[in-house]
Structures are given as structure tokens and as C-alpha cells.
Write a protein that binds this DNA or RNA. Structure first.
Lengths: 138, 138
DNA sequence: GTTTATGCAAATTCTTTGCAATACT
DNA sequence: AGTATTGCAAAGAATTTGCATAAAC
């Protein structure tokens, strides 16, 4: 069975063309994607279907929302998460020039002490700066 | 001179009622605020004016955009930044219940090593979980 | 045959732009 | 007086909702 179907089955999601296609895009793409960029790649699917699929993937722990300070939400594959428990330790890098957000898979967030009373559940770290591609061009 | 006016003068911004009021809200509020919540507190000001004021405050280094995984942008005071140089080391905490985002002023982001080729410019860390207020209620 | 997902239309929410009127210095 | 800011109208993104049709199991 193909990777996409394996993942969908694992989460008890019906195997539909839309889900297969969207999941496929994420599996073959190292950067975080917005709804708009998926819509671009899949012009045959309805805008709303894409929204609902993304949302359901997040609920099922297949995707996670990536932190951003911009307008539209971005999503990325949960490589490190297990099912419905999102115990993320994500480091993402957003390039200020090309605006691409990449997962820095190998970079770990060092541990730090939380103030009393705050219960940490999920930790996200976003570094903004200039990516290797863009710094070469200048 | 009042705090608000001092800050506006320092950044060569004209002293207007809108700016004074918006800045005042931030000075008296420990949490990150969205455009909508400011609009609520200041029903006499035009929606657009609030947007433009927030934007100009960000440009001048008075406010900074706070990382979020939600729909609307949130803003908070730059306590640690100097003028136009945003050299942030912010840790923010977003409560999954009340959705308030607070600045953990005393918590520092530990240093970590970036992969080769990536130029870090700004670092943001968002912890999501349950805040002291909400964990008491349960 | 049931249940779940899709597509279309339409509504909401968030944000930006243009321009004339107004307020600041 | 001269320049920057405001308000209003309107447009433009991003996202959500309702409901009938269609597809998956």
C-alpha cells in the first residue's frame, strides 16, 4: 500500500482523492504550506474541501499548524508526533526574503524553565532570517 | 510628560488621540492584543485607523507581532527592543483555554546552534498550554 | 444502506487601499 | 502653511457555515 493510504487508514480517514492528493503534496514538500499554495497545486479541488481536509489532518495529528506572524496559516507534516498527542518540539525557519518556512528537523529546542503555574503542552520556535538559497543570491 | 507621549515623541510620531489611547492600552495590559480586542476597547476609533496605528508602531519598534497559530495577528509591547532594531528574545505563552497570550518576560530563550547557511535575525518562542488562572478553575 | 466527504453558494472575519477632510507641528 | 493622520467607502484576502449531492465503506 502506498504511504498516503497507510497514513489515512491509520487515522481512520476515508481514502478520497482529495486527501490522497493533499497528503501527497506534503510528503513531497519540505516546506510549510499555506492553503493558497495547495489550492494552486490542486486547481481541481474546491477551496472549501482543502480547508476541511487541512483542518481534519490537524485534528488527527497528521499535520500541525506552523507558527507565523503573517496573514495566512501554514501547515507542515508531523514527523515527530504520535497520533493525537501533539508533543511537538518544532523549530521552524522562515526566510524574510522568499518567505518559505522550513522545518529544521535536526535542531532541537533546548530545555528551559517555565514560571510557576504555567503548564507547557506544546513548544514552537520560529527563527526568522535569511535562508541559504537567498543569501547566495546577494 | 506622560509615558505615552514620551514614547511617541521618541519615535517622531505625532501626538494624536488614537495613538495615545492605543499605546495606553498596551502599557496597561500584560497580554498580547489583537486588532479586534483593541477595537472593542476603543469603539470611537475607526477600524482602519487602528490597523494603521498598529502597523506604524510595529515599524517604529514600539510593538512587535506575536507569533500565533490562529487567524488574527496579535501585538505586544517591545520592552526589550531598541528603536528599529528588533532583537527579540521573546518567550510567549498562549493558554489553550482562555486563549490569552502573555509575555514571559523573565524566561530567556536558551541559545542553540543553527544549521549551516541559515542566518538568524529574530527568534520567537511560543509555548502553548494552560495558564495559572485556568488551571485553578479545573 | 449508512455514514462521511465534497462542491457550491453565501456569509463572516481580517486586512488593505484610495481619497477627501481634518488635525498636528 | 505644510505634512502627516484620520474616517469613510469599498475592495480584497482568508476562513467558516449550511445544505444538497456524491462518494466511501
Amino acid at each position: 500500500m502506498i504511504e498516503t493510504e497507510k497514513i489515512l487508514k491509520k487515522h481512520n480517514l476515508r481514502l478520497t482523492d482529495g486527501r490522497r492528493s493533499i497528503l501527497d503534496i506534503f510528503l513531497n514538500n519540505p516546506v510549510a504550506l499555506s492553503h493558497a499554495s495547495i489550492e494552486e497545486k490542486l486547481p481541481n479541488f474546491d477551496r472549501v474541501t482543502i480547508y476541511r481536509t487541512l483542518y481534519s489532518f490537524v485534528e488527527n495529528g497528521i499535520l500541525h499548524k506552523v507558527l507565523d506572524d503573517g496573514m495566512a496559516s501554514k501547515f507542515a507534516l508531523c514527523h515527530t508526533c504520535h497520533d493525537h498527542k501533539h508533543t511537538h518540539q518544532h523549530v521552524h525557519f522562515k526566510c524574510e526574503i522568499c518567505l518559505d518556512t522550513t522545518c529544521l528537523e535536526k535542531t532541537r529546542i533546548p530545555s528551559f524553565v517555565m514560571p510557576d503555574g504555567f503548564l507547557a503542552h506544546e513548544i514552537g520556535l520560529l527563527v526568522q532570517g535569511i535562508c541559504p538559497k537567498c543569501s547566495q543570491k546577494n
